[in-house]
């Protein structure tokens, strides 16, 4: 019987051209490498065989890559697809791509760029890749509000809206970016209890 407890069963942090899973560094590229090249290196290292990756905007690439890292060895495949949710937040929404799209308008506006001028498209990309069909929400907040995230997601579990989810912070604006993505489940052998302190702890390097 579900007793209301929810656990953090994995974390992925991407920052400063490094990728970490559960606090362990898995990939490092030179810091001077620019974001597109770093993302390509991450794709080659963790995935490959998904050409649609190259068409995504940096926000989608970052979220998609973090999900790839988190789910590669232990996917959430034991849950019904309809009950796996995605709850993300960031500061700049899709502004990074909005500006590039705006730039293309001077010539001929690019449909492929316009598609990414919404922050929630990153959740669409992750859902397409992993077949997740559960609840989605994308919040824009100044800083990563862990208390808020925990409160919101706990309610989703209480309502039975989800039985597992990916959640976290996926931010990019120009060269500056940061990802903290978490896997949260009802059952979590050895996992951390899902609360704000543990979100911080799980992502500490």
């Amino acid at each position: 019987m579900y007793n209301g407890d929810v656990y953090i069963t994995g974390s992925c942090v991407i920052r400063d051209n490094r990728v970490y899973r559960d606090g362990v560094q898995l990939l490092e590229t030179p810091r001077e490498l620019e974001l597109p090249e770093f993302l390509r290196a991450g794709y080659d290292h963790f995935s490959g065989q998904y050409p649609k990756f190259h068409k995504m905007d940096p926000l989608s690439k970052l979220g998609w890559l973090a999900a790839e890292v988190l789910l590669k060895e232990v996917p959430l495949s034991s849950y019904p697809r309809e009950s796996v949710g995605l709850i993300l937040a960031n500061k700049s929404a899709s502004l990074d791509t909005d500006l590039r799209y705006f730039d293309s308008v001077k010539d001929i506006a690019s449909p492929a760029l316009f598609v990414y001028t919404l922050p929630n498209i990153v959740m669409g990309e992750i859902s397409i890749r992993h077949g997740f069909k559960g609840e989605n929400a994308f919040f824009t907040t100044d800083v990563f509000d862990r208390e808020f995230m925990v409160g919101y997601i706990s309610q989703l579990f209480l309502e039975n809206a989800v039985s597992a989810c990916l959640c976290g912070w996926v931010e990019v604006m120009g060269p500056a970016y940061e990802v903290m993505l978490y896997k949260v489940e009802r059952t979590g052998d050895g996992g951390l209890v899902f609360n704000a302190d543990n979100l911080q702890k799980a992502a500490s390097i």
């Binding site: 669409g124 069909k133 609840e135 929400a137």
Partner: peptide
């Protein structure tokens, strides 16, 4: 109320 993802295409 309910929310779901179609998990099919960006648009």
């Amino acid at each position: 109320y309910a929310n779901a993802n179609d998990a099919y295409h960006q648009t």
